[in-house]
Amino acid sequence: MRRYVLSRLLAAVPLLLGVSFLAFVLVTLIPADPAEVALRVNEIIPSPELIELQRKELGLDQPFWERYVRWLGNSLRLDFGHSYTNHHRTVAGELGRCLPATLSLAGVSLLFVVGASIPLAVASAMTRDSLFDRLVRTLVFFGTAMPNYWVAFLAIWLFAVHFDLLPTGGDEGWRSYLLPAFTLSMTYISTYVRLIRNTMLAVMQEPFVLYARARGLPEAAVVRHVLKNSLQSSLTALGMSVPQLIAGSFVVENIFAWPGVGRLCVSAIFNRDYPVIQAYVLMMGVLFIVCNLLVDIISAMIDPRRQAEL
């Protein structure tokens, strides 16, 4: 067990380094001089001397690798420097301020995803080719083809404008979670209904299901076996929906004026606030790797066939 976790951790290290390197390199790709940008966004007319000064302050005069190592060291201590647009605020502070809103939205969306996709998929796989199954499949198809910002509009218009039931944006109590979480989860619900349904149909073809029926087990017991096996193999994908919901929230956060990290990043893009973008990218990259690791370890732990690996 410990050895497995340790080896997985070790395998994640190069990935983490790679992601951090990419996040760092991105800044060097900026078409403009970051020092100049930093001056301009604060409405200071850049003169050569000022730019020189700013370069020193940002450490841009040092060699590439040195800068990377220093940046990496700082990042490990969660020190991402200061925001360009607002010198009094640290990037870490900004992210920390916005993260809870994103996490709670992602959490509610995850509940929606799990709560909707599993029952829908099971019901539609069980009643294969029935009217219900076809309806679910149609919805799933449109769920993946519809731009989710457009769905958000339709929902805003219907529930917030037309019926005036829910707020159009902002974070004001549980009612304001419904529309954003619905919008955010819609695509993922469609994906997972499709995935779990197809997995169940595949599992139903397995000889052990035939044998369970041949032993005369009641259908409910057979379904229990099918479900257990299907969820086991969908678990990895379901687990990876957590980081996807967190990272994918930027569109929804923008539409619903949700005070989360996604909106922070998009406004940073408009303001060319590079340290914020860089920290956001690094954070999300790390989040994905860590989640992947956790999902892997958990699925190894609960799969008896993989217990030998532990």
């Binding site: 930027f250 973008i277 990218v281 999300m284 990259g285």
Partner: peptide, 18 residues
């Protein structure tokens, strides 16, 4: 490494920097 970079983040990163 490229594949472990989630698509949403990649977009924000590239558009953000370039």
């Amino acid at each position: 490494v490229m594949l472990s970079f989630p698509s949403q983040v990649m977009i924000l990163a590239v558009v953000g920097m370039l």
